[in-house]
Simulated scan of single mutants.
Amino acid sequence: MSKKFGIICLTFICTLALLLSACGNDDNAGESTNGIELGQKELTIPYVSWASTVAGVNVIKAVLEDIGYDIELTQVTPGALFAGIADGSADMSVGAVTLPYTHESYWKKYGDQIDDIGITMKDSVTIGLAVPSYMKIDSLEDLTNNTNNIGKKLEKTIVGIDPGAGQMQLTKNKVMPGYNLDKWTLQATSAPAMTGALAGAIDDQKPIVVTLWEPHWAFIEWDLKYLKDPKNLFGEPDSLHAVARKGLKEDAPAAYKVLDQFHWTKQDMGKVMVKVHDGMEPIEAAEEWIENNQEKVKKWKKGLKTSK
């Protein structure tokens, strides 16, 4: 009887150990999140060095790492971002894909090769040519009409950002011809170089016209205005989209679910951007924002069990 009892006890202990082990695996954020598999744990997110994009990618990086992913951020050009997601060498993007106007040309080329997960910020992104408010011009037509001799004062130059940016292409190929600015130059630089030029001009109270978008910390830092666009060539406000390579939903289901539930406002983004502009490391600014906005972040993680 004692031998039989011992066998029963041993069987019970082994069974209990297996059950505990299985439960442990279910709770392990490195393997699954409450039944939704992590799948591929190492993911790459390309980004362009735009203030808005830097804010978005660092927030999503922190959120995804919280549930067990290993996220690599890679700085690229706008064209490389779309191409990389389309060919599968990069996994996803948040904060950079602006539709339907700004990145229309890229979407026509790559859209059918990319999974559009959905809108993360609806009708909140505006683009245009901006000037300091002290300048005595108010419309793109003032550039056309050379109001207050503005062409000479600016040497007929508009200071832009990355040459591959959708806003640059739209400005060069549609807006400038539409306002007969064929003798003007759209100077390609980078987002930091553009804001640097803007800061210098404002310090000296000199005229300058730049390609700019909102949300952007520059509108908080300085008193700026968009030049009116009576022909509406820059289009209506855009929306930011989360996109992914084809197959990510199957390869990394939990990450895809977070992206599908990821929504925030330009005010949210602005808070992260200002912190970064003031000198805080982007990931630290993102983590601070997350700590202060737990209810919103919980909605992004709905259905998932986090590792923290």
Rank of each mutant, 00 (worst) to 15 (best):
P46R: 01
K249T: 14
Y134H: 11
L64H: 11
Q187D: 10
T157C: 00
K298P: 03
L259D: 06
D115Y: 06
E291F: 08
I8K: 13
P46S: 04
D112W: 07
N146R: 07
N173V: 10
M1D: 14
T147M: 09
P253A: 05
N145P: 04
D138V: 13
G303Q: 09
L20D: 04
L212Y: 09
S139E: 06
G84R: 05
D268H: 10
P215E: 04
Y47T: 05
K296F: 01
G247E: 11
A165S: 12
M1T: 15
T195G: 05
L99W: 02
N58K: 04
F219S: 12
Y69E: 09
V131T: 15
N292C: 05
L170I: 14
I36R: 04
G196R: 05
Q187H: 08
I67R: 05
K206L: 08
L170F: 05
I45L: 06
K61M: 03
E284G: 06
I283Q: 03
E281P: 02
V57I: 09
L304V: 07
L304E: 04
I158D: 06
E291A: 14
V276A: 03
K296C: 01
P207K: 09
Q169W: 03
N180W: 00
D87K: 10
L99G: 03
I220H: 13
L233R: 06
D116S: 10
V210F: 04
I8E: 11
K298V: 03
T120E: 00
V276S: 02
T126N: 11
A29I: 08
Y134M: 13
M168Y: 08
S49V: 05
G200Q: 13
K299V: 04
P282W: 01
I45Q: 04
N25P: 01
N232M: 11
T211P: 03
E291S: 14
C23H: 00
Y226E: 07
I119W: 00
I220T: 15
R245Q: 15
W107H: 07
G95E: 02
